[in-house]
């Protein structure tokens, strides 16, 4: 028994998502998703806006409950854990929100120090050293006295990243890390994700729809559309995929399996009909 456990611990897959269903109200968002996320690698989940990517991250983090199926992290079923165990697990997970979600009433320094103060009893000088290390890693040690309102969008995201890695998590989740950033910031964040993943031995999960950036840094990609996984593999594999979905997405074609037009009656008929 214990031997099999050890064997499973050595499993190359840190996170396993099995037949995951999720519905918000009557709207089904995820309709049976199977994803395996390898340890120590960068895995990206791609898909068009509103396809449930952020929802998927929240399901992995245990903030939402699936209607069917489950998520297993390091052999633990996330949704079967009690509150205490879930919180223990979350201490080993970091998440970078799309908005950064910095605490607006705390300075940059205090934002990064927050998880350390909450979960450790380290002395003030040690906390200071750790915070400065994390800020140095994202290049913002000099900005530690600023308030979140004084930061640019890219800086805020880097501070949020420093905060997310404050407790040296084993899994790092990034929600749309490149969206709405200038090219320089995108480059900086890409480099940071790669660097943190390799130097700290983390497992990274990125959710994004920025094809170019993601293909450049990911080891493995999954494509979600309409609640299903429609493509998976390495960047090159996906680029050569013959699936219509994948090709439309990877090559940014305006029309294809995902229609350009919102469902409507025929154009001519609509024009002739007059007023509603």
């Amino acid at each position: 028994m214990s031997d099999t456990r050890v064997a499973r611990q050595q499993d190359a897959m840190l996170v396993r998502i099995n037949d995951l269903h999720y519905a918000r109200g009557t709207r089904k968002i995820l309709k049976g998703i199977n994803i395996d996320i390898p340890r120590g690698k960068i895995t990206t989940i791609m898909g068009p806006s509103g396809c449930g990517k952020t929802t998927l991250l929240r399901l992995i983090g245990g903030q939402l409950r699936p209607s069917q199926g489950g998520v297993t992290i390091a052999d633990q079923n996330v949704h079967a854990l009690n509150n205490t165990d879930l919180y223990q697990l979350r201490k080993r997970m970091g998440m970078l929100f799309q908005s950064g979600a910095l605490f607006t009433h705390l300075s940059v320094f205090e934002n990064v120090a927050f998880p350390l103060r909450e979960h450790t009893n380290l002395s003030e000088s040690l906390i200071r050293a750790l915070v400065l290390m994390k800020l140095q890693a994202v290049g913002l040690r000099g900005a530690r006295r600023l308030m979140p309102a004084e930061l640019s969008g890219g800086m805020a995201r880097r501070v949020a990243l420093a905060r997310a890695i404050a407790l040296d998590p084993m899994i790092m989740m990034y929600d749309e890390p490149f969206t709405g950033q200038d090219p320089i910031t995108v480059g900086v964040i890409m480099q940071l994700i790669r660097l943190l993943n390799d130097s700290l031995g983390m497992t990274s999960i990125i959710v994004s729809h920025d094809v170019q950036e993601v293909c450049a840094i990911s080891d493995r990609l999954y494509m979600i559309s309409d609640g299903y996984v429609v493509g998976e593999g390495g960047p090159d594999q996906l680029k050569q995929s013959d699936s219509g979905w994948v090709r439309q997405f990877m090559n940014a074609l305006p029309d294809g399996p995902v229609p350009f037009h919102y469902p409507a009656p025929s154009y001519a008929q609509d024009l002739l009909q007059g007023l509603d």
Binding site: G61, Q88, G94, S99, A101, F103, T104, P115
Partner: peptide
């Protein structure tokens, strides 16, 4: 409400800090 709207409560939860208590 604004903390909720800007994901500050959510991020606390993900940091294993209960926003209800905090």
């Amino acid at each position: 409400g604004l903390m909720k709207a800007t994901d500050q409560l959510s991020v606390m939860e993900m940091m294993a800090v209960d926003p209800l208590k905090r």
